[in-house]
Design a protein around this nucleic acid. Structure first.
Lengths: 203, 203
DNA sequence: CGTCTATTTGAATGTACTCAAAAGCGGTGG
DNA sequence: CCACCGCTTTTGAGTACATTCAAATAGACG
């Protein structure tokens, strides 16, 4: 794990933050100073269930899954985090309680991590970051609301279409059983769904 | 709508707030001064879709539903708010954007309302209220996460059992088609579910 | 009492699951 | 380089869960 971070990498996360708050050069330097670059091979565990989540992960390259495991041992993917997405357990990070989710790399992935202590330092020194976090959190809430509505009102084929709109191109990069898990259907059924779509498109 | 509020009513909401933050007599008086008591007959509209949500509603007596309507015109109940629950559209309230939910009284209902401006005054004068709101918001997020997990991993009978645990006694007070809407099943199917439970309990 | 809505019931249908087996695909070692 | 292993994906048959539609019954309210 080399903590040195190239300018391209900083530019990516800076652009992400800039969508919410404007930082001057000094603030940006302070922000960059707390970032920790990490390389995760495929299947690497970033957070395992029951741990306390102490790091906000920003994905520079690759893809991460956030998931939980139900009573029958079935894995449910809660969200994917490809390039330019954030991944962490908000509840656990904010409250310091054991997390109910696991986080793992699906591909070889490079992330920038911000520790909880560093984040609190940023809040004190650059209060704008409070706003950044609050909005990140609000967006997570809104995204979750959409998912609840969809899982209640759409059927599997429509949820699949929504997934493809939300994560363009991701489908080709990750195992389909993970897509099935995200949609809340079995891998077998997703397979037949896809077959149906193909035969309908060009009969 | 009589804005005068009896001591019992204040005691109820004060106890609710006290579960999160401790207020002294003066702070409590300031808090009580911004509360507005409102009486809503059955089916009264507290918020209609597209409006901006400017009030946090605390339910003193009765019951409220928060719902959205999908593309086919089907209503989906997102949550119920009986006595001692809060109901408002967090996204719309926080950001001032048009809400995507409707809020209506299911029974004749008395609520205490706090306006957005008053809430911001409280944040300035008694910063502890920031904490109160943040935790209210976090709890909403966590509750929503549970619902997503349940809608993916539980089947209708189990979701029904979970509903009865979450809202004890509520089932007897409200139309069953609303329960069905909350569970994400048709009223007909909920009816057969209930019949099955009865015949299984005492054969 | 009559009207309107909610609930129950049943039949036919559709959606998605389980189980089982075959086919595809990627890596690894001989 | 190829053969084999393990994992993912596909395919199909049979089944369970939940829906739609239609009609009968029960409740609530004016």
């Amino acid at each position: 794990m080399d903590p040195r971070i190239g300018p391209d990498t900083v530019a990516a996360i800076a652009a992400n933050v800039a969508r919410t708050i404007a930082l001057d050069a000094e603030e940006l330097a302070l922000f960059a100073s707390v970032l920790r670059l990490r390389e995760h091979p495929r299947k690497a565990v970033l957070l395992s269930r029951g741990e306390v989540c102490r790091t906000m992960h920003y994905v520079v390259e690759g893809c991460i899954k956030v998931f939980n495991v139900d009573d029958e041992g079935v894995e449910h993917v809660v969200k994917f985090a490809p390039e330019d997405w954030w991944a962490f357990d908000i509840e656990s990070f904010a409250l310091g309680v054991p997390c109910s989710y696991g986080i793992e790399a699906i591909e070889a992935t490079r992330t920038l991590g911000i520790g909880k202590d560093d984040m609190e330092m940023l809040y004190r020194r650059v209060p704008k970051f409070e706003r950044f976090s609050r909005i990140l959190f609000q967006n997570a809430y809104i995204a979750l609301q959409r998912r609840v509505e969809q899982s209640l009102s759409l059927e599997a084929g429509e949820r699949y279409a929504a997934f493809r709109r939300k994560y363009p191109g991701l489908e080709a990069r990750i195992p389909q059983k993970l897509v099935a898990s995200y949609l809340g259907v079995t891998p077998e059924f997703l397979s037949t769904l896809r077959r149906r779509l193909l035969t309908e498109e060009k009969p």
